[in-house]
Nucleic acid binder design. Sequence first.
DNA 1: CGCTTCATTGATCAATCTCAACTCGCGTGG
DNA 2: CCACGCGAGTTGAGATTGATCAATGAAGCG
Lengths: 257, 257
Amino acid sequence: MNVRKAAATVRVDSQSSFPNRLCCGTCPAYELNLCRIASDAQSIDGRATPLEVRQTFHTVPARRIICREQDLHDSVPIICSGWAASVVLLSDASRQILSFLLPGDIVSTALLFEPRPHCLVEAITEVRYCTYKRTELKGILFNHPDLFEKLSRAWIEEKSRADQLIVDLGRRTADERIARLILNLSERLRIRGLLQTELMEMEFPLRQHHIADATGLTPVHVSKVLSEFRRNGLINISERSLKILDLAGFQRIANMR
Amino acid sequence: MNVRKAAATVRVDSQSSFPNRLCCGTCPAYELNLCRIASDAQSIDGRATPLEVRQTFHTVPARRIICREQDLHDSVPIICSGWAASVVLLSDASRQILSFLLPGDIVSTALLFEPRPHCLVEAITEVRYCTYKRTELKGILFNHPDLFEKLSRAWIEEKSRADQLIVDLGRRTADERIARLILNLSERLRIRGLLQTELMEMEFPLRQHHIADATGLTPVHVSKVLSEFRRNGLINISERSLKILDLAGFQRIANMR
DNA sequence: CGCTTCATTGATCAATCTCAACTCGCGTGG
DNA sequence: CCACGCGAGTTGAGATTGATCAATGAAGCG
């Protein structure tokens, strides 16, 4: 694992590994990007001294595990670039993906309060991420209620995505689940500036088995549904890239019920 | 709706509507019961003046809605007695229950930060609950880091139950889902002192359609699975009461995989 | 070149749903 | 007191969705 340590004042934006496009929306990246934490903090207490926050940057190749469920972590990772997944393994080797992590996402807000992640986090593409010492990050959040407010929004979004997935898995068909997954991802990417909105086209590194693990289906069935979507001119996947050809039609499938 | 207002100092235990048995475990009731908040708070700052916290008590009959998803709420409800459910309605009138709420549960930790619940909360039995002004409750939590720590544990538990449900709905059979639901409920009741541990017997007000809505199945299929459980001598349900007859066997079904 | 991973497709199977009929207990109103 | 309707649960038959199994091909890679 490639690790660079940097005990940087968070003011130094050039040390931040977030691409600029991440600093422009309402995504968790923006909310908790430590560059922001520094400047916000200053606007609160009016002092000029920048906060010292240790950041550590990591790069892992695709398929590598970022954190294990049984390990203890004294740091909180935030994805800088690439895609990852939180996944639960069952004893018969079947898997359930709880969520996909995109650039800017906190791996899990729970890690701010508890050293043990309750699921595995695995890189899908090559992933760069940045970790902060839990104690330091917590300290900052605690001293700055409005930052804390932002964290709580990230928390609420995390929970509400989980609730949404419960509904999808409990009450929707394979077609609906897959269409909704794709639309949710495209929306999250759009907010991050990672969707070509005119073309409705995005980088799409997921394998069909990832989609299967996320939607509670088998890879075989995912293949059949995607073929059907393609045949009906709804989407097009090629070269690790996905384009939504008929947005209205696709939404109709996703929102059914 | 029956409403009693009480601007009480939280020291006055007799005004608390929590039955004593709730104040003895590791359940959220204990963690956030405002009697505890008062005494803990004092042990922190060493002052003798009790905190003023407004509590409002409510009683609603079975089937009544406690809060609607579209409404705004400036208060945070905690269940005092009875069972409730958070449920999501779909446009074809099918329903998904996200979680059952038992005595002592905060209806949703998200309500501490956001006035809009993102799901419906519905009483299953007659429910007594108690609401606190969000701003007051937040203020207290913020000034007392160790109380805040307790809240964060309630958060983490809420999220981890949601994640567990995702895995159940995504990767487990009807038998497993139902068995796990019952075992989870029995464990939560045990912690609250609401399970007769020798007999493995508990009050069980759920209708089969509640079980269906929580497990993503149809009431018809739930009936068949429960009949099968009964036929195999695993459990017994009668008179709104459930007894686990063969705990080991039942756990074997639930933990499969 | 040969291995592995990924995706596709068809045939068959199994879990669960849908529909329908029926029972039981309960409350209500005549 | 009885008839009635209603909600809850049971049971069976048949339909449907998605899983399983198996064969095949294409792409990537040492």
